[in-house]
Amino acid sequence: MDKLQGKVALVTGASRGIGRGIALRLAQEGALVAVHYGTKQTAAEEVVREIQGSGGAALAVGADLSSLDGVHQLFASLDEQLIEHTGYHRFDILVNNAGWGHAATIDQVKEESFDAIMNINVKAPLFVIQQALSRMRDGGCIINMASMATRFALPHLLEYSISKGAVNTLTLVLAQQLGSRQITVNAISPGFIDTDMNVETLATQEGQQFAAGLSTFGRWGQPADVADIAAFLASHDSRWVTGQIIDASGGSRL
C-alpha cells in the first residue's frame, strides 16, 4: 500500500459516486486528495472527513465547471489550498470524473441539453487539463472518465455517447503529446455502476435484472470496481500504459 505516498491528486466530481470512490482509494494509497464538487459542498466535506478519519489527507475545492470562469476558479482555490497544505501548488494526478447526462434520442435532443452535456463532459476536461499542465509534475498522470456507451449503440443516450467519444479522442491525442513529459493519459470506460445517477433503475426488480444482465458476471458494478483501476493508473505500476481506453464494464455485451 501507500503507492501514492507524497503524491497530490485532483479528482473532479468527487462528492459522490465513482468520483467519491476514486478519491477514497487514492487517499488510501497515500495521496493528498483534492475533492472537487460542483454544488454538493456538504457531501464533499463528508468525503474529506472520511479520508482524514482513516488517517489520510484531503481538502475540498468547489467550482462550477460548466464555464471557463469556473475552471479558473477551481485552480485559484486549489492553488491557495495546496500552498497552505504543502507549500507549493504542484500536483501529480488529475482525474476528470465530473460529468452529466440524460436520456434523449435523436428526435428528442434540444440545443440547451446538448450544450450543457458538452460543457461538462467535453469542454470542462479539456480546459481543466489545459490549466493543470503548468502545475503538473513530469511523470504524472491524467485519467479521464469515458463510458461503455462508446463501444455499442445506446440510441437513448445519444448526447452522452457523443460526449464520451470526444473524451476518448482527447485521451489519445494528449497521450501522444505528453509522452515527452512522461505523463500518462488514459481513460476508464465504466459500465452500469451503482451510483446516484442509476438509483431509479435499481429501485425496481426489472431495472435490477437489466443492470445485472449487462455484465458477464451477472451483477452491476460498484464504485470500487472503477476506483481500483484508477489507483493502478495513478501508480508507478502503470508507467508503460498510456493512450488506452480501459473497459470497466464487467464484460458488458461482449
Rank of each mutant, 00 (worst) to 15 (best):
K3Y: 07
L10N: 04
R16G: 04
I22Y: 00
A23E: 04
L24H: 03
G30Y: 00
L32T: 09
V35F: 12
G38L: 00
T39I: 11
T42K: 10
A43L: 11
A44K: 08
E46C: 01
V48N: 09
R49M: 11
G56I: 02
A60T: 10
V61N: 12
V61G: 12
D64F: 01
L68T: 11
E80W: 03
Q81L: 03
F91I: 01
D92G: 06
I93S: 13
I93M: 14
L94T: 07
N96Q: 00
N97P: 00
T105L: 14
D107P: 04
D107Y: 10
E111C: 07
S113N: 14
S113F: 04
D115A: 14
I120G: 05
A124G: 09
A124R: 09
L126D: 02
V128I: 10
Q131S: 10
L133E: 00
S134G: 07
R135S: 01
I142V: 11
I142A: 04
I143S: 03
A146R: 05
M148H: 03
M148N: 08
A149R: 05
F152H: 09
F152R: 15
A153T: 06
P155V: 02
H156P: 00
L157A: 08
E159F: 11
S161K: 05
I162A: 10
S163W: 03
K164I: 12
T169G: 09
L170T: 13
V173T: 13
A175F: 02
Q176K: 14
Q176I: 09
Q177H: 15
Q182H: 15
I183L: 02
I183E: 02
T184S: 13
T184I: 09
N186L: 09
A187K: 04
I188Q: 00
F192Y: 10
I193Y: 12
I193D: 12
D196R: 15
D196C: 05
M197K: 07
V199T: 14
T204M: 11
E206N: 07
F210Y: 15
F210A: 14
A212K: 15
G213C: 12
T216P: 01
F217W: 15
F217P: 07
G218W: 02
D225Y: 04
V226M: 06
V226N: 03
A227Q: 06
D228Y: 13
A230S: 15
A230N: 09
A230P: 11
A231R: 07
F232K: 02
S235R: 10
D237N: 08
D237M: 09
S238P: 06
R239V: 15
V241L: 14
I245K: 12
I245L: 15
I246H: 09
D247H: 07
S249D: 06
S249Q: 04
G251D: 05
S252E: 11
R253F: 10
L254S: 14
